[in-house]
Simulated assay, not measured.
Amino acid sequence: MRQDVHFVTLSTPDLDAARRFYVDGLGWEALLDVPDEILFFQVAPGLVLGLFDAEKFAQDVRADAAMPASGVTLAHNVGSEAEVVEIAQRFVALGGREVVAPEPGAFGGIFHAIVTDPNDVLWEIAHNPGWHVADDGTVSFG
């Protein structure tokens, strides 16, 4: 098997809140939006984030009940500490919540904040001076 991930799909209790947050609030463009079912965003070359209605997610994975996303963070790297603060504040203003206020991280020499979307999906907004993506898409940490 190749070392590829093409979809990250999260169970989402309130798909309408997710749509308002990501599309209306953050200005993201949906790749595919199936009302009352799933919302897809292309988030990187060849990578799609899916927000799947929790009940339909449970049916798809044959679970007895809706399963919240847990033990997962989505990370967004930015160019400065000021951008970390700005984006974290925007998440909160759009109905998310602050989990960890912007601060120097305990690991890796970063400055970060941990925030959620309205469905409690955890996001790490980080400035990592060593983070680099080459023209061919290869990631290095400096």
Rank of each mutant, 00 (worst) to 15 (best):
V139D: 07
P102I: 04
D36A: 12
Q89R: 15
S140D: 13
L39E: 07
A69G: 09
A88P: 04
D53C: 13
D33C: 09
G25R: 07
D135V: 12
Q42V: 03
V48P: 00
A66F: 05
V115E: 02
E81C: 14
L39S: 04
R90T: 12
D36F: 02
A30G: 06
G96F: 03
E29Y: 08
D135T: 15
A88K: 01
M67E: 15
Q3C: 10
F41N: 05
A54T: 09
V100T: 14
G71H: 01
A126N: 01
R19P: 09
V121L: 12
A17G: 10
F57L: 10
L10M: 14
T138W: 01
V115N: 03
F40E: 07
A101M: 11
R62V: 11
G79W: 00
R62H: 13
G108R: 13
D33L: 05
D136P: 02
R19K: 14
S80H: 00
M1R: 10
S140E: 06
G27F: 03
S11L: 07
F107S: 12
L15A: 13
I38K: 12
F111L: 07
D16L: 07
M1Q: 11
A65L: 11
Q59M: 12
P13M: 14
T12C: 15
V100Y: 06
D60W: 05
R97I: 03
D36N: 15
E86W: 05
D60V: 03
L26E: 03
L51P: 03
I110Y: 05
D33A: 13
P35D: 03
V61N: 08
G25I: 11
A54C: 11
H132G: 09
V84T: 03
G27K: 05
L31H: 13
G105E: 02
G137W: 00
G105M: 00
R19F: 08
A75V: 13
E55R: 10
A54R: 11
G96Y: 04
F91Q: 04
T73K: 13
F111G: 00
F7E: 11
P102T: 11
P35E: 05
T12G: 04
